[in-house]
Simulated scan of single mutants.
Amino acid sequence: MYLWVKAFHIISMVCWFAGIFYLPRLFVYHAETTDREGSERFKIMERKLYRGIMMPSMILTLIFGFWLIHLIPGYMQQGWMHAKLTLVVLLIGYHHMCGAFMKKFANDNNTRSHKFYRVFNEIPVFILLGIIILVVVKPF
């Protein structure tokens, strides 16, 4: 059972990160868009990505992750797991920030430049690196 849950945790995490990486990239292009038709197209793409892929993937990642902790309760005594969960909380916050930015674009209230979103897009890379290193290396 453990390996199945772990496999589905990894699959849902990969899907979640695909959206986490792509949505801010859409924000970059959306912030650069000057025509109404293009803006409306980005609004649809952003909404479908956030609600149809990112949100379900995040929920499944969390369900399978907590299931893994339930199956191996000893994980919670290890420092690397506490650090990983801290990064997961930061990632959830990032996810919700993406949702807030998406709503601003949907209401034509975006005040950020494409340069801001280019930098914002890099944040989850560092979170992913930290999570992978913690899970594989288990440094503490």
Score class of each variant (00 low, 15 high):
1 M>D: 08
2 Y>F: 13
2 Y>W: 06
3 L>H: 11
6 K>P: 06
9 H>R: 06
11 I>W: 02
12 S>Q: 07
15 C>F: 09
16 W>N: 00
17 F>Q: 06
19 G>W: 01
21 F>M: 03
22 Y>K: 11
23 L>N: 02
28 V>K: 08
32 E>N: 13
33 T>W: 04
33 T>Y: 00
33 T>G: 04
34 T>E: 09
34 T>N: 08
34 T>A: 07
34 T>P: 00
36 R>L: 13
37 E>N: 11
37 E>L: 14
42 F>D: 01
43 K>H: 08
44 I>M: 12
45 M>Y: 06
46 E>L: 07
48 K>E: 08
48 K>N: 11
49 L>E: 04
50 Y>S: 12
50 Y>M: 15
51 R>N: 12
51 R>W: 14
54 M>F: 00
57 S>F: 07
57 S>I: 04
60 L>S: 07
61 T>N: 06
61 T>I: 00
62 L>I: 09
65 G>F: 03
67 W>D: 01
67 W>Y: 11
71 L>I: 09
74 G>D: 13
77 Q>N: 13
77 Q>W: 01
77 Q>E: 12
78 Q>N: 11
78 Q>T: 09
79 G>Y: 10
82 H>P: 01
83 A>N: 03
83 A>V: 10
83 A>D: 10
84 K>D: 01
84 K>H: 06
92 I>H: 06
93 G>A: 06
93 G>Q: 03
94 Y>E: 04
95 H>C: 02
95 H>F: 14
97 M>F: 09
98 C>H: 02
99 G>T: 07
100 A>Y: 11
105 F>C: 10
106 A>P: 04
106 A>K: 14
108 D>Y: 10
109 N>Q: 14
111 T>I: 08
111 T>C: 00
114 H>Q: 13
115 K>L: 12
115 K>Y: 12
116 F>T: 03
119 V>I: 15
121 N>D: 15
122 E>N: 05
123 I>L: 13
123 I>Q: 04
124 P>S: 12
125 V>P: 02
126 F>G: 14
128 L>G: 03
129 L>A: 14
130 G>C: 05
132 I>L: 13
133 I>C: 11
134 L>A: 03
135 V>L: 12
135 V>K: 08
136 V>N: 07
136 V>K: 14
140 F>E: 02
